[in-house]
Design a protein around this nucleic acid. Structure first.
Lengths: 209, 209
DNA sequence: AAAGTAAGTAATTAATTGCTAACTAGTGTA
DNA sequence: TACACTAGTTAGCAATTAATTACTTACTTT
């Protein structure tokens, strides 16, 4: 004898969990472009999608799972973009250049990404999130170190170069760029600045007089 | 006729507000070495000091004021250390080296500092905190750019060098180091790595063949 | 058409957090 | 000594937040 209650629900389009998951990840990265990733709430993500907050938990078991998926997304997309850019080049030096600029272009298109990485890097050492970032960066370093060593073998750069240290400088030069654009809130200027920075980096690899 | 309540207070030593302020700032920086600065709560700061949480607000009007003071502390201490290091050198190149390593030494002694800066950099563009960080970095860049330009005038480096871009690379090379130590949770290794990175940076300024 | 599954809503919860207020107690000075 | 001042405590408020739950409804399958 229960009286059925008229629903006032304005139910959202029903999309597959898979679709929602990618939507959630993309939303997180979009939101991270404008605010500190640590301050993004599940409510905010839901609002951006046009969801209720509870609906998010139909597609991820926890907030942490969302961040892990976002880092996976970055690894999948950024790394594969750079790796394929490196392959379509004639020499290791050209490969380095291709990696450098594909990273810059990626970040310009998705400014939230470096903020996400910076943020998760600050997590405690034993967290799952930090482990994921570590994995991503290790893959990145391997790609760059390989190219630098190959360039040394070809004689394109100083044969006695310390490829590990040079990789840190490579990553650092990009980070310097990213930091500058964050300080100045001027992402569009990144590419032009990158064109000045990369040649400087290259010179550091050259035979010293 | 109110009955006076026996107090169970185990009152902490009464220190001057000035003393407490520096104590709070140092605690924040110490805590930032081990966790994301954004997750540091007033309760945590108070616990570390041996305070109650309410007592903190006797010395700072708000949490934001604590962060602003911390950034001021960094500017005061890091910048002045680097500036004085630069002064006690024979040449601009030596000055750059002194700045580089005094920064590294500072960060090794206080690993919380770069995490603080990274974190506050992610605040919205219009926040007071971000403005403070901007000011700090501007002063930093001015110091480095000046040295590079002086080196160019002396002929110690390529006269056609872009000092602005080189400054970004200088800062980036330090950031790369810092990031590496954060990824690996291995601050002690920083100095040795720095000794490999700085010569690489220097080569990027040299006359190209 | 009936049944089952999965994605949505709405409401609520427990915990946390920044901050405040009322009160208490050392400290220095008139 | 008296008294103002300042730093401490305790308690609690208002807001926020991740997560859960009971219920509803759309789509798929048989």
């Amino acid at each position: 004898m229960s009286i059925p209650v008229k629903s006032k629900m304005a139910t959202q389009a029903r999309l597959s969990s898979e679709t929602r998951q990618t939507q959630i990840i993309e939303t997180v990265i979009a939101l991270a472009a404008r605010q500190s990733p640590g301050q993004i709430t599940t409510q905010e993500i839901a609002n951006a999608i046009g969801f209720t907050q509870g609906a998010l938990f139909r597609h991820f078991p926890s907030k942490e799972a969302v961040w892990l998926a976002a880092i996976d997304w970055v690894e999948e997309n950024l790394l594969s973009a750079m790796e394929s850019a490196a392959k379509n080049t004639a020499s290791p030096i050209d490969g380095l250049q291709a990696v450098f600029f594909s990273h810059i272009d990626f970040v310009m298109a998705r400014p939230g990404v470096p903020r996400l990485i910076f943020n998760e890097l600050q997590q405690p050492a034993d967290s799952a999130i930090k482990a994921a970032v570590r994995k991503l960066l290790q893959r990145y370093r391997k790609l760059v170190t390989g190219l630098i060593e190959a360039a040394a073998v070809c004689g394109e750069v100083d044969r006695s170069i310390d490829a590990i240290a040079a990789t840190t400088l490579f990553l650092g030069s990009i980070q310097g760029l990213v930091m500058q654009s964050m300080v100045a809130d001027n992402v569009p200027a990144m590419h032009k600045t990158a064109e000045k920075i990369f040649p400087l980096f290259l010179r550091s690899l050259k035979e010293s007089a």
